[in-house]
Design a protein around this nucleic acid. Structure first.
Lengths: 87, 87
DNA sequence: AGATATTTGTTCGTATGTATC
DNA sequence: GGATACATACGAACAAATATC
């Protein structure tokens, strides 16, 4: 149960976990509109406290990677439609 | 968002913030049994760290100005009923 | 309708480490 | 060495929204 991450000491845990989630979104492991792990999930998988997990999600939310609905969970944000990528 | 206090250097920040809160209680800005700003509020309003905000509240609590309930917040203490003010 | 479980939001309590004065 | 101040991190408790039974 849970990766046993040996956290580096030169960077906060919440940043390291956020980076892992970020990469999973980029890699497509977590797809748009699908749910990402709950704070409880992160606690178990990474062996961190809930407030630390909360901080991870807040960071990802503030950078627009996910959106959150209380009582439901967090979800991968849809692709950016404001950018002129598809003409 | 937040007063921009230019903290004096001759006195600890936590004491200066405590004094501000103290004065607001005296002035009636914060009334008995009503909630005073959370530690998070103080962080934002005064631009201080949470541990510093915590120190502020602890000082006010120890002098009886407020009481605290974990998970709820801190509240202005009721008027002192032990003193023989109203006969 | 009611109870329960899950999930996020928010609050305080505490400890540790680092840096500065 | 002690006091101040910051960030990090864990724990605990209360609250609200959602979903399910």
């Amino acid at each position: 149960m849970g990766i046993v991450i040996d956290f580096r000491e030169d960077q906060p845990r919440w940043q390291q976990v956020a980076q892992v989630i970020r990469e999973r979104i980029t890699a497509g492991t977590y797809r748009p509109a699908s749910r990402v792990p709950s704070e409880n999930d992160l606690m178990q998988e990474f062996g961190i406290a809930r407030m630390t997990a909360h901080k991870v999600m807040r960071a990802l939310r503030e950078e627009g990677a996910i959106y959150t609905v209380r009582g439901m969970g967090s979800f991968v944000s849809p692709p950016d439609t404001t950018a002129p990528s598809e003409a």
